[in-house]
Write a protein that binds this DNA or RNA. Structure first.
Lengths: 379, 379
DNA sequence: ACACCATCCTAAAACGTTTTGGATATGATG
DNA sequence: CATCATATCCAAAACGTTTTAGGATGGTGT
């Protein structure tokens, strides 16, 4: 008889229950939608509603499990309680750690976020902001992602090439970071230092490289051009993992045949790739070559040998980014233009005193052990 | 004079430009909103509009840069073109790799996604689905996340404890995976095998453990209970990284003082932690102890020594999950109940023939080198 | 001349909220 | 008794779309 019964829910999931609407709730209470809206939405006008009525409304709202329709709400308020995160790739450790921090802050404030990984594709970087604005995001966080237009929502950028008026940038203090790195290596007696630069086009790359050269110059150390490699050209390098890029860069360095006793990599991921390449070439870390990374991603304390690195507090930086963004969204404060993060040297096992004879060693045929040489406290 | 001028855009970002609305566009064209809506929204009724008019509409839409308001649209269509991904933690490599795959598929179809990391917090796992439904998600992907209610949207689960009618599960074939693992180790001559089980409460944990025991039994190998540790109790274990958990588990194993020559870890991340613990104890991998992981996360091919592992194609699994979900959303097909993924043994450097004498070695005072013993093709 | 049918378009009612500008009742005030 | 606050509440318009149910126009066949 009834056609209704024939509606076969073949999908097996629970049938979509009819959601209680504001109107229904109001009707059930014998009130007008206006009144109910005032109290549920926490409007200042809720004060003009009798306390007893307010209580009734809340009770009924519980009872009928009323949940305001976010979309209808948006039409008036223009608030979506969501932001966007643009990133080269969600799945690399660096971005993932940042996103973790971002999320934990956003979650506290009831915000959600969309993430888009452009993987270096120019058209994605170009078009995404617009698509995201269509989705009603109230702000954006750019992680290592360029921006060339001015956006109608607040923007916070982490370590990068993001341009535009009013954006606030969160970056490690590359001067201090480079100085920390140079000091550490020089103290260990290294003078022949090789460098794996970041991707050309990445903001940190230039800063860090300049700072490093300056720090070295002050110690009267010259970095031989043959001992400099880089992680590819931005953004193309994003199509491969950082470790792969680091691996390739280290091999390039070795091929140049210019002896070095220490290697400073652009970041931990590339350092890990580089160490792999060194090991493949029969070079021991740190006995033959000391390696220094940047970032201190979680895995760096579990590599064999453990990675010495200049730490950026990624999770905190993510939180800071989210926090700053939310403030910009809430208030009309422009926020700071630049937030410099203090780097920290974390000495683990991949750096050791320079062994005078080791400088020239190339492909060793006997493999020897990368034992810790410096004693260090457990974290 | 004009109050307007006093509105100080202190935030420094571009002033929000007035968006062209459908009504405005229609008016500009001298048409009714209805007509314009038909063609812009791709309604079937667009066919009833003269081709010339359609062209005019598209042209004007370009010209005025019209962008439909997603929220207004949703009110009628109930389509948000977004889904949710629930995950223990965005920032661990396993989840990150999956999410990468998920995103790449979603992006192709114009879908966005929210991710929520519950980090093992029960109230988050409990409440998140509701909050996400409020946000209008059309489906959800559960990664290693429990579910005890039936949801009004399609659900796809990856490797887990997600219950409910109509959900489709994507899991590695743990029987084959365990067999692959056991075969490999036995072929290398190992008989004293230790195991780091997954977190108690994780779906894969049980399956994999049972399958492994069965595979061993067939080869007449007993796994000594003293040689079994686990990665903590789900979901509490999610508050620490997998590598940390693996590190601890391996130390527990060593403390039991029951000799073993091979260790199969629940996943690569914990294997990496375990190798760290072994190295700290002066044990060489693979000469003293062979280690086998599961997953093949990207970093596994860059560890020293490179990790032998049972591969799950994480990115593809993510894509498959997203694809399946979108199909369930689009059609009314329930989709398959279970999709079994073929595991694959990837032999790298952490497994080697069992050295007869090495079994009893405990804390060695001399550190020796983890050189590759098996030759292997580069990937 | 008429009915009839295509073809092309539109008015108005949704969708589920917020917001504006009152309305109503009550009791105090002069 | 008319006036006026005060305390509560509400009707209706708005937000920007989609969708339903036609309306107008012009050509065909009789």
């Amino acid at each position: 008889m009834s056609e209704r019964k024939l509606v076969n829910n073949s999908s097996g999931q629970a049938p979509r229950p009819p959601r209680t609407t504001l109107k229904a709730l109001a009707h059930h209470l014998g009130l007008s939608p206006t009144t109910v809206s005032f109290v549920i939405s926490g409007s200042p006008l809720a004060e003009t509603i009798a306390k007893s009525t307010r209580d009734r409304i809340w009770a009924a709202s519980e009872e009928l499990n009323y949940r305001p329709n976010v979309f209808a709400r948006y039409l008036h308020t223009k608030k979506s309680y969501s932001v966007a995160v643009l990133v080269p790739d969600v799945s690399d450790e660096y971005s993932a750690a940042l996103i973790g921090g971002i999320e934990s802050c956003l979650a506290k404030k009831g915000f959600f976020y969309f993430v888009v990984s452009h993987r270096g594709a120019p058209e994605l970087m170009e078009k995404s902001p617009e698509t995201l604005l269509d989705r009603g995001v109230e702000g954006m966080i750019f992680i290592n992602t360029p921006l060339h237009q001015s956006l109608p929502v607040p923007v916070v950028a982490i370590c990068d090439i993001t341009e535009g008026p009013g954006i606030t940038r969160i970056m490690i203090d590359n001067n201090k970071a480079a100085a920390l790195a140079a000091d550490h290596l020089v103290q260990l007696g290294h003078r022949d230092i090789a460098v794996i630069q970041g991707p050309q086009g990445n903001g940190d790359t230039e800063h860090r490289w300049r700072a490093l050269r300056k720090a070295c110059r002050q110690k009267e150390i010259q970095i031989d051009p043959l001992n400099v490699a880089h992680l590819g050209v931005y953004p193309a390098c994003n199509e491969r993992t950082m470790a792969e890029n680091g691996f390739d860069a280290a091999r390039e360095l070795l091929a140049h045949d210019k002896p070095f006793t220490a290697l400073v990599a652009f970041n931990d991921a590339s350092a890990i790739g580089a160490i792999r390449a060194l090991a493949d070439a029969g070079l021991r870390v740190p006995q033959d070559i000391s390696v220094l990374g940047f970032d201190d991603i979680p895995q760096s304390s579990f590599t064999v040998p453990r990675l010495t690195t200049i730490r950026q507090p990624l999770a905190s930086m993510g939180e800071l980014a989210a926090e700053t963004l939310l403030e910009k969204i809430a208030g009309n404060s422009a926020g700071p233009g630049l937030l410099k993060i203090e780097p920290e040297l974390v000495v683990r096992e991949t750096t050791a005193p320079c062994a005078p004879r080791s400088a020239g060693i190339k492909i060793a045929t006997n493999f020897a052990c990368p034992a810790p040489i410096i004693a260090l406290p457990e974290a």
